[in-house]
């Protein structure tokens, strides 16, 4: 048994560290639950909140089932339009995670491509891209995302806003997060580039694109994975913030941020559940992703071992 442990530690250090970290396991469990609930929301949710046939305005602002005036049809109450809050939260989580994952994938593909090319070829492309990255890095992501969102609103015709908002949101968040990927990948590529296996591939006459993608990329996956996790939390947060500010997802498809915004309007008159439950969901999701990100960062950082 002990021998097996020792072997695991040498052979799969990552798994070994994970098995010994209770907090990371808990966070992974909670994160999986959130993702599961989001993916399965059409089957898990008692009602479909997008379907107008299910919504009755007479059911609006019903408190949670256990409190006075509650209705057992709606476990945690309803919102201002009579939507079942539990269903709205499940669907909202799905939308939030969907936009978050899509935009972080966009940022990752863009950032990794730029970083690989800048690190591999160097030269003028490298200089220009890194200058742009420097300027953008001095602006906080939320400002960049807001600005791109605003420009898109100006360019696109007004009738198209609702249909295109999710794409606009994804691009805005993605463009404000690519810099982290690009800088890290560039630095790692710089190191890998001078190693013997890359030189060997070059002598064999391999195409640079093939060297970058097939040979260099697998060797720098660690840091990419760390940024992916840490920035996923940032992307979800950005989406929630933009939707809260009213410039995010269209109002007929509420995400968690939209639900929270609606909730604040009713907070003063004592309808606390509309704001509390979506906020709790958002916080739990972001904390678990952040803890996982911290774990990955420590696990991939040889200095800390």
């Amino acid at each position: 048994m002990i021998a097996a442990w020792r072997r695991l530690r040498v052979e799969n250090e990552f798994l070994y560290l994970f098995i010994n970290n209770r907090v990371a396991q808990l966070a992974a469990f909670v994160a999986t639950l959130c993702v599961g609930a989001a993916v399965l929301s059409p089957w898990l949710a008692p009602y479909n909140p997008y379907d107008i046939a299910n919504i009755d305005l007479m059911d609006s602002l019903v408190p949670p089932a256990w409190s006075e005036g509650g209705d057992e049809r709606f476990l945690i109450g309803t919102d201002d339009q009579g939507r079942d809050l539990l269903s709205a939260i499940l669907y909202g989580t799905r939308l939030s995670l969907f936009v978050g994952l899509l935009s972080i994938t966009f940022a990752c593909v863009l950032g990794v491509s730029v970083g690989l090319m800048a690190g591999y070829f160097g030269g003028r492309f490298d200089t220009i891209m890194m200058r742009i990255a420097d300027v953008q890095l001095s602006l906080p992501a939320i400002l960049t995302a807001l600005l791109i969102d605003g420009i898109a609103r100006g360019i696109l015709p007004r009738e198209q806003h609702d249909n295109l908002m999710i794409i606009v949101l994804t691009v805005a968040i993605g463009l404000s997060l690519w810099v982290n990927f690009a800088r890290t990948v560039r630095a790692s590529t710089f190191v890998e580039r001078n190693k013997e296996y890359v030189q060997a591939s070059e002598i064999m006459g391999m195409h640079p694109l093939r060297i970058m993608v097939v040979h260099i990329l697998p060797n720098i996956m660690g840091p990419i994975l760390v940024i992916l996790t840490v920035d996923l939390a940032v992307a979800v947060l950005l989406e929630a913030t933009l939707s809260f500010l009213g410039v995010g997802v269209p109002p007929n498809q509420p995400s968690l941020g939209t639900l929270i915004r609606i909730g604040t309007e009713y907070m003063f008159s004592g309808e606390w559940w509309i704001v509390i439950f979506p906020s709790a969901m958002l916080i739990i999701m972001i904390i678990s992703i952040n803890i996982l990100g911290d774990f990955l960062r420590d696990a991939f950082n040889p200095r800390l071992r």
């Binding site: 929630a240 929270i260 909730g263 604040t264 704001v275 906020s279 972001i286 803890i291």
Partner: peptide, 22 residues
């Protein structure tokens, strides 16, 4: 501090309003 980094600014604001205002 972990909570402080994870909780979005607007949620902090809302909770402060709820606690000290409402």
């Amino acid at each position: 501090t972990l909570v402080g980094i994870s909780v979005p600014t607007f949620v902090i604001g809302i909770f402060l309003i709820y606690l000290f205002g409402v």
